[in-house]
């Protein structure tokens, strides 16, 4: 599945390592082991080094993601506006801690340092939708929106 990606890169060029990892993660949502091996062969960098890079950067993950990704901004402006509570509420609501995926694989909860939307703090990002100026009370409503969307989707799929 990821072999096509290599076409647009030059072999043996270490500087394309990070873009390659990013592209692979775009396909799978995470970095599978065999993809890391292929990348290592392609850029001619030992697998240990590839692993080193993949674990250094926050963006890369080695485990699969849930259907919906919730990113809680923990930037300074959000912190001052009590994003710690937002995170805590999400954690209790979903029954997981930051960095984990719910058992039904519906939600992954992540913490990001700053998504640069400080003016509407506190912010959470669900998939690509920004939810700004939220309070703890809004959280069940937001989660519900994504749960129902998925239910109808699966209902349609089973038809």
């Amino acid at each position: 599945m990821h072999s096509k990606i290599f076409e647009s890169y030059q072999s043996n060029d270490r500087s394309s390592l990070i873009p390659l990892l990013q592209d692979v993660q775009n396909i799978y949502g995470y970095l599978p082991e065999n993809a890391l091996r292929d990348i290592s062969d392609f850029v001619k960098v030992p697998l240990s080094r590839v692993y080193g890079v993949a674990t250094f950067y926050n963006q890369f993950r080695l485990t699969p993601l849930g259907k919906n990704i919730i990113r809680v901004c923990r930037g300074t402006a959000c912190h001052v506006k009590n994003s710690a509570n937002i995170l805590f509420a999400l954690e209790t609501e979903l029954g997981i801690t930051a960095g984990q995926t719910t058992r039904d694989k519906n939600f992954t909860l992540e913490v990001v340092n700053c998504i640069g939307a400080c003016s509407i703090a506190p912010v959470i990002l669900v998939n690509d939708d920004y939810h700004g100026r939220i309070t703890v009370k809004d959280i069940p409503k937001i989660l519900k929106k994504y749960q129902t969307v998925n239910k109808t989707e699966t209902a349609e799929a089973t038809k």
Binding site: R14, V45, F56, Q59
Partner: peptide
Amino acid sequence: IKKGAGAFVCGEETALIGSIEGKRG
């Protein structure tokens, strides 16, 4: 364009250069 991969330290110039070269920043 080089996309960063989420490391605050890469704002430091030598770390940033390392990151473009495909190393740990």
